[in-house]
Design a binder for these strands. Structure first.
Lengths: 130, 130
DNA sequence: CGGGATCCCCAATGATACTG
DNA sequence: CAGTATCATTGGGGATCCCG
């Protein structure tokens, strides 16, 4: 998987210069798929509004999500440095999640997308097709 | 666009008022999942920039997509009234796709998301995890 | 309480072949 | 050229059990 796109001259070009969405080898694609899901949209919004929430509370505020998906999604967001996990060493343990500054910056474009979806939903109103 | 933000009177209240992303029964969720994919992001961008393109050309400009996925994705966009399909009755037939005004309006929030992904890719740089 | 491990099933996706 | 139909594969995601 050589990234022969536009490696900066004189720079050890292992890193991708910038996001080239159209380069199949570019992780930007996968990133987009990761942050484009409904779960991410919901969780980021919830955290953006509430600041910090515990696992159970987050689950309660995300109707329909399974425990597995929540944990999995949170892990992904953590790996991408969009969310920070804070553990309180009590018994039983209490774990809280909140957005990093980067995560907060993501909320803006995501909000635009959410808003678009909510706004234009009526006129799209896909008539359920099998 | 004066869809009432409330369910139609006299109708079984199954319908969702407006975008309530947090209502599991709301199609806004599914919509979000549909427009959040990388293929949609790429195709919408390409069409937004080029105006109208034929199937083969669109495929050429979307590296990595299969014929099936392209057709499928275009169908979805068509069903959502984001893309229009124009057929010229020649032999062999020529089919072109372009964005509807609604589709063009989607390009804006999507562009924000693409831009965010491309911009912050470097600092995320998820260290490949097996 | 938070979440890792496991099993299992269906839907999404790719590859190939065929048609209007 | 622009798809559709069919088949095979996979892995996403729910349910369940268990552990720190």
């Amino acid at each position: 998987m050589e990234d022969g796109t536009s490696a900066p001259p004189g720079h050890s070009g292992v890193t991708t210069p910038r996001g080239d969405l159209f380069n199949p080898a570019c992780p930007t694609r996968q990133l987009l798929d990761r942050i484009g899901t409904k779960w991410v949209a919901m969780i980021v919004k919830t955290l953006a509004e509430s600041g910090e929430l515990r696992y159970a509370e987050l689950k309660r505020r995300t109707p329909g999500i399974s425990a597995k998906m929540l944990a999995q999604t949170l892990r992904g967001l953590e790996n991408d440095h969009l969310v920070v996990r804070r553990v309180e060493p009590t018994v039983p343990p209490a774990v809280s999640y909140s957005l990093t500054p980067l995560g907060q910056s993501l909320d803006q474009p995501l909000a635009a997308l959410r808003d678009w979806a909510e706004t234009h939903m009526p006129e799209i109103n896909r008539a359920a097709r099998p």
